[in-house]
Design a protein around this nucleic acid. Sequence first.
DNA 1: GGCGAAAACGAAAATGGTTGTCAAAATTCT
DNA 2: AGAATTTTGACAACCATTTTCGTTTTCGCC
Lengths: 125, 125
Amino acid sequence: MSTRREAVREALTTSSGFRSAQDLYADLRADGSKIGLTTVYRALQALSDAGEVDVLRTDEGEAVYRACDTESHHHHLVCRVCSTAVEIEGPTVERWAAEVGAQHGFTGVTHTVEVFGTCAECSRA
Amino acid sequence: MSTRREAVREALTTSSGFRSAQDLYADLRADGSKIGLTTVYRALQALSDAGEVDVLRTDEGEAVYRACDTESHHHHLVCRVCSTAVEIEGPTVERWAAEVGAQHGFTGVTHTVEVFGTCAECSRA
DNA sequence: GGCGAAAACGAAAATGGTTGTCAAAATTCT
DNA sequence: AGAATTTTGACAACCATTTTCGTTTTCGCC
Ligand SMILES: [Zn+2]
Ligand SMILES: [Zn+2]
Ligand SMILES: [Zn+2]
Ligand SMILES: [Zn+2]
């Protein structure tokens, strides 16, 4: 694990929400790092491949990443305002997805589930 | 509703799967239409705004569209190979998403749920 | 410590989907 | 028909992401 990649992981870990490559690059540069944008992309790619970070796409198509506490299968409850995310689980959903796939004769069934809303804190404002 | 927009809607309706703007553009041109790519994008934007087509993002970030039978809330079971999609509903998931959001104090809770797999036909091959 | 191979870096260019611009063409109105 | 309005499409601009490639750093070995 190179120093640069460690820096990207660190920058990602200090945030509880999903961040884009550009966000992280800006953060790191603001902290005085001389890291290049390409390296940030490469680090995120590697971390993603290693299953150490979760990725999802915003409505605008931008990839955003998050360093989750658990590496086991889970989903997220994401604040639309501050992008803070909470890891959630749902045996109910897991079962439902598998069943609906099987019912239609699909094999190798997977799913994507994300829940969005305005978090308690942002709701107050 | 202009002729061009109608043509895009038609091209989308003849497919049971999700298609990208570029796909539709290629289809239309192959059919002899002189439509421009810009117009395809504009038509899809309008149809999407009107809630007449569903949009989702591929893993690569490309927007893909589908003219669904129902305009009411639903999700999709999508074939990873041929991209054919089946509209599915799940009261269970709807309830679960609302609950998990409420439990964490989130307001204005929405969700995205898509199920992927290999359809029966593609599984045979 | 010195050295060479291999891996990591970063700046700049290339890519590819999508959107903005603007003048021409089609449609609608009077 | 003629003017006003909308739609269209070629082309340029955008922007996130990837590729390229020469430079720098790291690492194993002498
Ligand atoms: Zn929030
Ligand atoms: Zn799941
Ligand atoms: Zn299929
Ligand atoms: Zn739903």
